[in-house]
Design a protein around this nucleic acid. Structure first.
Length: 489
RNA sequence: GGUCCCGUCGUCUAGUGGCCUAGGACGCCUGGUUUUCAUCCAGGAAAUCACGGGUUCGACUCCCGUCGGGACCGCCA
C-alpha cells in the first residue's frame, strides 16, 4: 500500500443517514485506519432542491454514534476544505472554464423536452439512449443566435469512442465502451455542477487515493476516468463494493427494509457495536470462524482483498441476534444507562433515577432477555407497578384452581416466616414447603412467579423475591390469592 | 433493449486443483439445564457447490457456453 492512503465517504444530504451509506463509510474507515491513512467526510450537497441541513446533521450524528470518526470534514475541518460542496463552487468553476477553453466540453442548448423525445426514439429502435451530439459543433453564430433567443444551456463533456478500463480493487479489470456513453452533462442550466464532475474534482483536490463505494457507481467510474484524463488528473484507485439487497434481491430500499440508521436502528434500541459488526459481515469475512469483532479488532483484521464480489441480502434476524449478543456481553452499568432513554413513562423515569441501585438489580435480571434496548420497557414495568393479569394465568400447567389456591396459601405462609429474602433461603424453604404440601415444585413456583410478575415469562421466582423483599412479595401473593379465589369454577 | 456485475445450505459466508463424504454463523428442529421465558450446553435437518461442456490422474476451485438474478443507462447522487 502506498503511504498516503486517503479515503472518503461522500454522502448527499438528501435523506436520512442510510444503512448502505453506513456500510460504505465503515469499509472506508476500516481501510484507512488499517493502513494508517485518513478518512474524510465530504457532503455532496449540490442538489439544492433536495439537500437539507437536517439530513447533513443526521448523517454526522449517525456516523459519530457508530464510532466512525473522520479525520477531515465538517466540524473538524482540515487543509482541503471546505467540506460542503456548496461552498466549493468557485473551485469547480476553474475546471469548467478549463474544459470549455480546451474544447473538451461545450454548451448544449437542447431542452429537456427535445432530449426526452430523442431518448424515446432511440429506445424504440432498441438503441442505448445517448445524446446525439447535436450541439457539439455549433458555430459562433449559432451560439449567439441561441443566446439571443434566450435559450439556456447545460455544459456537456465530449466523449470520443474508446475503451475505458477500470482497474477495480474488488472486481479486477472492467472495460467500458465509451462510444456507448454519449456526451454527458457536467453543469446544469442553473450553473450547478453535477455529481460525476464535482466528485472527480474533489477527489483530486482532496488527494483521495482510493474510492471505495457501492457497485451502482461502477459505470460512473468510467466517466470519471475520462474526465480525469481531460483535466490531467491522476486517477484514484477504485473499488466497488457489492450491494446490499432486499429479500427479493433488489437493491436495498426504504420501501422494503428499514434503512434509516437513526430512526430504524438507533431509536429502536440497537447497539452501534452490533450494527457495525453485522454490517461488516455483509461482504467481508476474516477467513476464520470468528464472527464477533470489536472495532479495534476490525481495524487490525480488515483487508480489502477479503471483500467479496457478490451482493448480500440484508437479514434482520441475524442483526437482532447479534444485538442481543452484544447486550448480554456488555457491562451491566452500560446497559442500565443505555436502557434508561427507552423508558418513556415520566413517572417511571423518576422512580428509576431516585433509586439507581435498584434499577441496576432489575437490569441484571433482564439483561439476558433483551434483544434490543427498547425491550426493556415491556420487561421491567412489573418491578415498579402492580401487575395485572387474568386469574387463569396463575394456574400452572397440569394444575387447577384448588391446587393453585393451595400453592399460593402455602407460599404465603412459608414466606411470612422468613426474613432473609436471599435466593438460597427462599429456594430451600419454598421447595420444602411444596413437598410437604404434596405440590409439585413447578406448580407452586409458577403461581408465585405469576403473582409477582403477572407474566408467563419472567426472571426466576427467587430472584424476584429477593428484589421485592418481604412486604411487597407478600402483598402481591395476597392479591393473587384474592384473584384466584374470585375465579369461577 | 444496451452495457456491466454477480451466482456454495432459506440467509451471511469459509473454500484459490487433492485436506470437501463442502466448514462456521443466523434461522429452524430435537434433547439437556431451569418453576416459565431468555441464556447456556449437546445434537439434527438443511448446498447434486446455478446448469452443460471442456482442461486435468483429479475440479466448488481453471477455460468456454447457457441460464438466472442484479446494477446502470437523468439538467439525482
Amino acid at each position: 500500500m502506498p503511504d498516503n492512503i486517503r479515503v472518503r465517504i461522500a454522502p448527499s444530504p438528501t435523506g436520512k443517514f442510510h444503512l448502505g451509506t453506513a456500510r460504505t463509510a465503515l469499509f472506508n474507515y476500516l481501510f484507512a485506519k488499517r493502513n494508517n491513512g485518513s478518512f474524510i467526510l465530504r457532503m455532496e450537497d449540490t442538489d439544492a432542491e433536495r439537500s437539507q441541513d437536517q439530513f447533513a446533521k443526521d448523517i454526522i450524528d449517525g456516523l459519530l454514534w457508530l464510532g466512525i470518526g473522520w479525520d477531515e470534514g465538517p466540524e473538524v475541518g482540515g487543509e482541503f476544505g471546505p467540506y460542503y460542496q456548496k461552498e466549493r463552487l468557485d473551485k469547480y468553476q476553474v475546471y469548467i472554464d478549463q474544459l470549455l477553453e480546451s474544447g473538451a466540453a461545450y454548451k448544449c442548448y437542447c431542452t429537456p423536452e427535445e432530449l426526452s423525445v430523442e431518448r424515446e426514439k432511440q429506445q424504440k429502435q432498441g438503441l442505448a439512449p445517448k445524446y446525439s451530439g447535436k450541439c457539439r459543433n455549433l458555430s459562433d453564430e449559432q451560439h449567439q443566435q441561441y443566446e439571443r433567443d434566450g435559450r439556456t444551456f447545460v455544459i456537456r463533456f465530449k466523449v470520443d469512442p474508446q475503451k475505458v478500463v477500470i482497474d477495480d480493487l474488488i472486481r479486477g479489470k472492467v472495460e467500458y465502451d465509451a462510444g456507448l456513453m454519449g456526451d454527458f452533462v457536467i453543469v446544469r442550466t442553473d450553473g450547478m455542477p453535477l455529481f460525476v464532475f464535482t466528485n472527480t474534482i474533489d477527489d483530486y483536490l482532496m488527494k483521495i487515493s482510493h474510492v471505495l463505494r457501492g457497485e451502482e457507481h461502477l459505470p460512473n467510474a468510467a466517466k470519471q476516468i475520462l474526465l480525469a484524463e481531460a483535466l490531467n488528473f491522476m486517477n484514484p484507485q477504485f473499488g466497488h463494493l457489492p450491494l446490499i439487497l432486499n429479500a427479493d434481491r433488489s437493491k436495498m430500499s426504504k420501501r422494503k427494509n428499514p434503512v434509516s440508521v437513526t430512526d430504524d436502528y438507533r431509536a429502536k434500541g440497537y447497539l452501534p457495536e452490533a450494527l457495525i459488526n453485522f454490517l461488516v459481515l455483509l461482504g467481508w469475512s476474516s477467513g476464520t470462524d470468528q464472527e464477533i469483532f470489536s472495532m479495534q479488532e476490525l481495524i487490525q483484521e480488515f483487508q480489502i482483498d477479503r471483500v467479496g464480489k457478490s451482493p448480500s441480502i440484508f437479514d434482520p434476524e441475524k442483526l437482532l441476534w447479534m444485538n442481543g449478543y452484544y447486550i448480554r456481553n456488555s457491562d451491566l452499568g452500560k446497559i442500565a444507562h443505555l436502557t434508561q432513554e427507552f423508558i418513556t413513562d415520566k413517572e417511571l423515569q423518576k422512580e428509576i433515577e431516585s433509586d439507581v441501585q435498584r434499577y441496576l438489580q432489575v437490569i441484571a435480571l433482564v439483561q439476558d432477555r433483551l434483544k434490543t434496548l427498547a425491550d426493556v420497557k415491556s420487561l421491567i414495568t412489573f418491578f415498579y407497578r402492580k401487575p395485572e393479569y387474568p386469574a387463569s394465568l396463575l394456574i400452572a400447567r397440569k394444575s387447577d384452581k384448588q391446587r393453585t389456591e393451595k400453592a399460593l396459601t402455602v407460599a404465603e405462609r412459608t414466606l411470612r416466616e422468613i426474613d432473609q429474602y436471599s435466593v438460597d433461603v427462599t429456594e430451600v424453604s419454598l421447595r420444602k414447603a411444596a413437598q410437604a404440601a404434596e405440590l409439585k415444585d413447578g406448580e407452586l413456583l409458577w403461581s408465585v412467579r405469576v403473582a409477582l410478575s403477572g407474566s408467563e415469562a419472567s426472571p426466576g421466582v427467587f430472584e424476584l423475591l429477593e428484589i421485592f423483599g418481604k412486604d411487597e412479595s407478600l402483598q402481591r401473593i395476597e392479591t393473587a390469592l384474592k384473584i384466584i379465589k374470585s375465579l369461577r369454577e
